[in-house]
Amino acid sequence: MHIPDGFIAPQVYGPAYGVAGVLWAAGLRRLRRTLEPSVMPRLAVVTAAAYVLMLVAIPLPGGTTAHITGVGMLAALFGAWQAFLSLSLVFLIQALALGDGGVTSLPVNALCVGLGGGLAARAGLLLRPRAVGVFAAGWLGAAVPALLVALVLGWQPHLARDGAGQPLYFPFGWQLTVPAIVLPHLLVGIADGAVALAAWRALGRGTP
C-alpha cells in the first residue's frame, strides 16, 4: 500500500507535508502530556511488530502482493494519534533503510494509512462485544487506508497533465485504482483483524 516516489504530484505532496507536519507536531505535544512512560516498552514492541509485519508480503490472486499494516493493532492498543505517529516513523525508516515507499510520498502514506487507518480502527472499536470491535479495528485499518490510497492515486491523472494531455504522475483513474487496490485489502484486512485481536489479547487487556 506504500505509494512510491514519482507517483504523486507536487501540488498534492506539498500541502500534504504541511498538513502532516501540523498533525505530527500536535500529536507529539499531546503524547508528551498524556502518554505514560510505563507504556513505552509495549509501544516500542508493537511499533516494531508493525514494521516487521509490513515486510511480509501476502500473495494475492492476480499475481500481486499486499501486506499487513498493523495500524488497527496500534490504534486498538494505544489510540489513533499514536497509530499515526508510529506509522509515520515506520514509513520514514522504511523509506530510508529499505527504499520502500518514498520521501515525497511519506506524508500521503502517513495521512492515508496512519491517520485514516487509525481513525477508522477506533470507529471499529465501538462495536461490541469487544473482541468483534478489535477485529473490526484491524479490518477497517486495512480497508479504509486502501480506499484512501486508491482515491489519492486515482486523483493524480486529473491533477497534472502535460501539453499533450498525458498524465505527468500516476496515470490511472479511480475506475481502475479503487478495485485494484481496495479489493485485495478487503482480504488482507482479515489478517490485520486477526493480528489486532491477537495483540489485544496478549497486551491490551485494560486498555481504554
Partner: peptide, 28 residues
C-alpha cells in the same frame, strides 16, 4: 542488502522509541 536494511531499520526504530521513552520519563 534487504536483511541488513531491515535489521538496521528495526534497530533505528527501537533506538528512536527508546530515546523517546527516556525523554518522556525525565520530563515526568
Amino acid at each position: 542488502d534487504r536483511w541488513s536494511g531491515a535489521i538496521a531499520g528495526l534497530l533505528l526504530l527501537l533506538l528512536v522509541l527508546g530515546v523517546g521513552g527516556v525523554l518522556l520519563r525525565r520530563r515526568r
